[in-house]
Simulated scan of single mutants.
Amino acid sequence: MKLGLALGYWGAGPPPGTDEQVAAAEDLGFDSMWTAEAYGSDAFTPLAWYGSRTTRMRLGTSVVQMSARTPTATAMAAMTLDHLTGGRVALGIGASGPQVVEGWYGQPYPKPLARTREYVGILRDTIAREKAHSDGPYYPIPYTGGAGLPSSGLGKPLRSTLHPYRTDLPILLAAEGPKNVALAAEIADGWQPLFYAPRHDAHYRESLETGFTARGGRPEDFDVVCMVQVVVDDDVEAAANRVRPMLALYIGGMGAKGANFHYEVFARMGYETECQKIQELYLAGRKDEAIAAVPLSMVEQVALVGPKAKIAEELPDFRDSLITTMVVSGSPEHLRTIADLVG
């Protein structure tokens, strides 16, 4: 199991200490670093900026949102950065959720699986320097009109002027639901779960196998890249308190009732009652109570919290799981501790 550095997305501004974290991860032999985006900072710019300070680590997006860019625009950014870094880019993409897609990007959300399949197909063709062309309903290339917007009729399929550094630049798919996980196994080079519980992964294994069967077999280098929060503290509850706010946010606030994929992840683990309570409290504006309603056992399903000895005892669950790259965050000292624990 390889280690990756999670840089995530920014809050109000660039977080302090990132240069030091990146330098420490490179020195410690981390395999990769990963940026993200929601509805603030983008994923590509920080990846290029901080990636220019490295020479070895893979540079991944976890994830770029499909609705933020057309498939060809995403391919352009990934191919450009791949050249600048000597072929170190891993392109993680995701459909996001309806609140962000429709509320931030002003794009329609329905049919995310069909849109993803069409999007990845165009990405593959563009990166392979084939002419960009799609007859699909979501990303028609060339544009011939639709949704009340006329076409000039002058568009034609174009081939990238940029020759790719690699035609096999890896594409990873962020997915949580069973059908989307199966799609990742079928059409992508890797899968990026957000919350993954090794002790409750039977449904993920089944979904991946469905996708690999449709693909005709599992690629040898299929990468499962997952962020795992690691909090070292002699007080287990104090350590869990560092994780609870994020779980409450995603379960309670990152999606509407009946349309929250993160909620569903934990519900499938058997926490339906707890998820319902967390969501009700969070949507009612009682965020502190929602955070307090996250049980320790739920935290321990997806994170490593507590004294070093406890973390070392639980780490094999993650090492022996589907995860091939465990993505972590923290100060340089904390990254060294994790590297020592993982060995």
Rank of each mutant, 00 (worst) to 15 (best):
R159W: 02
L162D: 06
A267T: 10
R215W: 07
E206A: 15
P110K: 02
L172R: 05
R286W: 07
T45Y: 11
A68Q: 10
D233R: 04
C226Q: 15
R166H: 07
T126A: 15
G252T: 02
I127C: 04
V294H: 00
V224K: 03
R56G: 05
R124L: 11
A259I: 05
Y282F: 14
A68M: 11
T144N: 11
A128V: 09
S151K: 13
V101W: 12
R286M: 08
K156T: 14
Y143V: 05
D234P: 06
G106F: 04
R218E: 15
G51P: 05
V342G: 10
T35P: 06
A303T: 04
H163V: 13
Q229H: 03
L247Q: 02
F318E: 01
N180V: 06
R124W: 14
A95H: 11
S96K: 04
D42R: 07
V342P: 04
V265R: 00
G103E: 02
G29Y: 13
V265M: 10
K131S: 12
L169P: 07
F212G: 07
E313H: 15
P14Q: 15
T74R: 02
K2M: 10
R319Q: 15
G8C: 08
R268S: 14
V230M: 08
G29T: 04
T18A: 13
R244F: 02
D82Q: 05
T210H: 13
N260M: 10
Y105E: 07
D19G: 13
I251D: 06
A239V: 02
M33E: 01
V181I: 15
V232L: 15
D42C: 09
A259L: 12
H163S: 10
L123H: 01
D31T: 12
R244S: 03
T45E: 14
Y250N: 02
R88K: 08
S160N: 11
M227T: 11
V305D: 06
G306W: 04
D320T: 13
F318R: 00
T55P: 01
G190H: 00
L296H: 00
E186C: 01
Q276D: 14
V243P: 00
F44S: 06
K2H: 13
V231E: 08
A48H: 02
M66F: 08
T70G: 14
D320Q: 09
L158Y: 11
L296E: 01
P137G: 14
L249P: 01
P16L: 14
T74Y: 04
H203W: 15
V101R: 10
V302L: 08
T80W: 12
R69Q: 09
L183N: 00
T126H: 08
R215Y: 01
G17T: 13
S32R: 00
L47S: 05
L47R: 02
D135W: 10
A182Q: 06
L47W: 01
E300R: 15
P98K: 13
P140T: 12
P164L: 03
E280G: 10
A175T: 04
E333L: 07
A188C: 10
V236P: 08
G146D: 07
A174L: 01
F318K: 00
T85L: 09
L249Q: 07
L208N: 08
Y204L: 11
W104I: 09
M66I: 12
N241Q: 12
T61L: 14
T18V: 15
R124G: 07
T55G: 15
E209W: 06
V100R: 02
E272P: 06
L123P: 02
E37D: 09
M1T: 05
W191H: 00
A292D: 08
V243D: 04
